[in-house]
Design a protein around this nucleic acid. Structure first.
Lengths: 244, 244
DNA sequence: AGGACACACATTGTATACAATCAAGCGTAC
DNA sequence: GTACGCTTGATTGTATACAATGTGTGTCCT
């Protein structure tokens, strides 16, 4: 019971380190569960119930719920507890749109500005190697791993652009999109087209071709958006036909 | 002591209503104070100290501090309390860049998409009237009022674009920029050029001129950024020369 | 003088008891 | 039959006591 979380105190390149308190691990666990649809949509969570499941008092649970609410994972029902927030299609589209806004600006900025510093240059080179490798070598990785790598790709680019504030906003969006990225990469051939698109983005940035980089990024994000959109519509249609 | 906060329970067009608990009003008060530089930069805040100043227990204070930390108003010093976060020039530039990313995308979207719904059309017309009025009629409004109206202008446009998620991100940025907007509007003639720029933005959107709308928005935001930038540099230079 | 150790203090983390609030269900009056 | 108000239960809001943790400081030994 003492060394529950082995990831504690790891240091991130952002300089933040994860605290080792109960509410943080409750937040992490609940995010994990919500993202993986452990709870049905609109499932109600009460403080007392969570105290039992985690065997802690209400203080850390309350703090965890506040954080989750401010990050949009749950919503507060006044005097009626909290509910895990269900994403409808419209909301997912919105998240993809904000990604577009932030990432198009980012690549344009990268393709316009001066040379990168050493750290960022290395990161970009590593991305190139990673996605070249994925294109040639390993054909069928698991969707979850691909989704993780995809998120890393986009966040690395944002970091290279040097705007920490923008990176923070992008991360909060990506956190909520993780599940849908997995749906995205379940689609056959999506891995390959993603590889090509990512390499294209890197090439255009290196070539200082701002509008080309924007176009490549837009293509990549919108393909993901479309995959997710159709997958969800299909799932809803199946759910509907099963009821009738 | 009972009806301290008369704004409680007002309903917003976003559908959220402000709760009436202690931690919320502590958050509001502290934000207000921090924005208006009531505390010197890097001033340390401890839970116990805030308990005394607000005459409440640690529970609401803790929650308030968590919220403020997640919104970037204070930062947590492990085991050493909290510190009000000082904005350096770089960070302000970052905030302006994120605004650019979000707002350029927004106006492009507005100038590209179909017609607005009734509510939004009315809002946009009202903006036009407001800023036309400011151009002709009232020459010297106070900077704080102008900053408020400016924020309203940009948020109304974002709302008209119909993406609530994007609006939420923009609001969290604007909240932190409020003070600097006031600095911006302290500059002579800034009010007039803002009026012209705002009317130009509205015109381009109505004319479905996407690239023109982007250019107009970029001009408006960057002028503000430059004003703030030079004002802060001057202030720092004065502070420096006074020490020597 | 310099370093290591220990102790005290400041500060946050956690548990728990009690207060306040609100929704829902039930009964009663009209 | 309907509307109003009361009671009750569920749930969050607040206060407080105690635990854990890390920082700084003073002292003692070398």
């Amino acid at each position: 019971m003492k060394q529950k979380n082995s990831k504690v105190n790891q240091k991130d390149r952002t300089g933040e380190r994860e605290p080792s308190n109960l509410s943080s691990s409750i937040v992490a666990t609940l995010k994990e569960r919500i993202i993986h649809w452990h709870y049905p949509p609109e499932h109600r969570l009460t403080e007392a119930e969570l105290c039992e499941t985690f065997n802690v008092s209400r203080s850390p649970v309350r703090e965890a719920l506040r954080v989750l609410a401010s990050d949009g994972f749950v919503k507060k029902l006044p005097n009626r507890g909290y509910a895990v927030r269900q994403y409808n299609i419209g909301e997912i589209e919105e998240l993809y749109d904000v990604r577009l806004a932030l990432e198009l600006y980012t690549v344009e900025h990268l393709a316009t500005g001066g040379p990168l510093d050493k750290h960022d240059k290395e990161d970009m080179d590593k991305l190139k190697r990673t996605w070249t490798g994925l294109l040639n070598g390993s054909p069928n990785k698991k969707a979850e791993e691909l989704a993780r790598l995809d998120t890393l790709f986009h966040e690395t680019i944002a970091r290279a652009a040097g705007n920490k504030t923008l990176l923070r906003h992008l991360r909060s969006i990506n956190e909520r999109l993780m599940l849908f990225r997995m749906i995205d990469f379940d689609k056959k051939d999506r891995a390959e087209s993603t590889c090509r698109q990512h390499l294209e983005i890197l090439k255009r940035i290196a070539a200082k071709d701002a509008s080309g980089a924007r176009a490549a990024m837009q293509l990549n994000i919108e393909e993901g958006r479309n995959n997710v959109h159709t997958a969800i519509k299909d799932a809803l249609a199946r759910a509907y036909s099963m009821k009738h």
